[in-house]
Amino acid sequence: MKRAPTHSYPGINLGERHASAHKATEVVTFGFWVFLMSDLVYFGLMFAIYITMIDAQAGGPGPHELFDLHSIFAQTLILLTSSLTVGLAMLALKYNLPRVRIVFWFAVTLVLGLSFLVLEVRDFMAMAEKGGVPQRSGFLSAFFGLVPLHGLHVAAGCLWLIVLGIQLRVMGMTDRIKSRVVRLALFWHFLDLIWIGIITIVYFGGLAYG
């Protein structure tokens, strides 16, 4: 063993208080990081396409007509807060707080995730009303290839929260459940990282160079 047992995978560790779950989590979490990184490469490709497509508006509506910065601002704050609450759920697990605390933070995260999605879908509908549909131009195709892909990830995260909440009730605090909570927290933080890229490159970049 060359690694210290208290910190054996990236991200927050369960630590020695959950010895058996900690060991079981180590390999799985490393594998999950490999998944996250390949997902990152996928997103990176979509970002690259978007950057090359910023000017390819083909006379259709561009960023200035389509983007609603107020809504983007609200979505950013919501997603950032949800990243904190999922971290607090993870801490509640790590320090063996009552299970109701974990479920509470899960519920808050779920509500925030769903509000994010509602705002995002509302934005897409507003864009479509102004003629901003994917088939209108290369710019819009690239936009709708990238931003809803992130939204889809958030939706998957919400589903995961619900399923894990139910499993927590039915199966109790088993090692497997603990390890799943660790990965869900990583996934959710990762989505917030991608969102920073989206506001910087897609929204502000689009407005600056579109």
Binding site: T6, S8, P10, W33, M37, S38, V41, G44, A48, H189
Partner: peptide
């Protein structure tokens, strides 16, 4: 602060994973 990636020796191999993926990403973009 959220993903706890740092330069601690025990997590260095994992840092390698993140850094290599970032390199691939930069080459692609």
């Amino acid at each position: 602060y959220f993903l706890h990636i740092d330069r601690r020796r025990s997590s260095r191999e994992d840092l390698d994973l993140v850094l290599f993926s970032t390199l691939v990403l930069l080459i692609i973009i």
